[in-house]
């Protein structure tokens, strides 16, 4: 008896990535730099979020040639992004054997109402969320891993903090709520009662929770881990800094030892005078340029 694509194996790969850093890369060389620095996985894409912002236009699934060349270059798992609701892109990525699919607000949504029904896929999905309701809706659709959305490509951690705190606060509230309140809470959250009751009982999501969107320094990574993230996605923070190798390694070290300020300080010191990516004030971005509000 052999069963592939079960919840256990789909959620299981995310469990193996815990405590690690997943890095956005746009070339096989960058993927090797990420692996050498200690990344647990890479996200293969044509442009990092900061460049997607600058380029404008429609951002789609990356070229398969590029994704394949990155899969061939490294031994760690490779993830790739599809547009929200674009199940055909997801079928394509599953067929080439990608390890994880990110149904991502960083790409231009293909469907402004519905996300992909993810349960029938053998390949696991990770999805973004700004709050507990959004996280549980994605899990109900079959997501095997959740990441806070943050504001991708902004170099600004404020949105990731807001989303991670929102998820954590809502879980803590549920875990002390009397049973008779759960149905009303499920309605408020817009999430299935079974999942709400499970979170109330366990005090955590039924899948692994990473942080994404705005991490650009080792201290940012340590902050998010202490706020309850089980691992970190870094998009533009590494390859938009002016020393990618140093930043990659320092963010890995700070994620591993997030609770030890001496080691986080050492990671910061290792950067010398290199500078982090330039950041954006998210409050000054027009609504049309916000990525986190895509999908709900």
């Amino acid at each position: 008896m052999e069963h592939t694509g079960t919840d256990t194996v789909k959620r299981g790969l995310a469990q193996m990535l815990k405590g690690g850093v997943i890095m956005d890369v746009v070339t096989p060389d960058q993927a090797l730099i990420a692996q050498e620095a200690g990344a647990v996985a890479v996200m293969a894409l044509e442009r990092i979020p900061a460049d997607i912002r600058t380029a404008g236009g429609v951002a789609r699934m990356s070229s398969l040639e590029l994704i394949q060349s990155i899969m061939d270059a490294v031994t760690i798992p490779v993830m790739a992004k599809v547009r929200i609701g674009h199940f055909a892109e997801a079928h394509v990525l599953q067929s080439i054997g990608i390890d994880y699919i990110d149904e991502s607000e960083v790409l231009t949504p293909a469907d402004d109402k519905y996300h992909i029904e993810k349960r029938p896929f053998t390949t696991p999905f990770v999805c973004g969320a700004r709050d507990l309701g959004e996280a549980l809706r994605r899990i109900a659709e079959g997501a095997a891993m959740i990441r806070s959305k943050g504001e991708a490509g902004s170099g600004n951690i404020v949105e990731a903090v807001r989303h991670m705190r929102a998820i954590g606060d809502a879980i803590r509230e549920l875990s002390v709520a009397p049973k008779e309140e759960l149905m009303a809470r499920a309605r408020e959250l817009g999430a299935p009662l079974e999942l709400v009751a499970q979170v109330a009982r366990d005090g955590c999501l039924p899948v692994v929770l990473f942080c994404a969107g705005g991490v650009s320094t080792p201290a940012d990574a340590a902050l998010m881990m202490q706020l309850g993230a089980q691992g970190i996605f870094v998009g533009s923070g590494i390859f938009k800094s002016n020393n990618e190798r140093l930043f990659a390694k320092a963010i890995v070290d700070a994620t591993t030892h997030y609770e030890d300020p001496k080691i986080v300080a050492e990671a910061c010191r290792s950067l010398g005078t290199s500078s982090a990516m330039p950041g954006l004030d998210v409050r000054k971005l027009p609504d049309s340029e916000l990525l986190a509000t895509r999908g709900n």
Partner: peptide, 12 residues
């Protein structure tokens, strides 16, 4: 990764 990539991950 001798048994394959993630799509080949399995309960046995």
């Amino acid at each position: 990764n001798a048994f394959g990539r993630q799509n080949e991950s399995a309960e046995v």
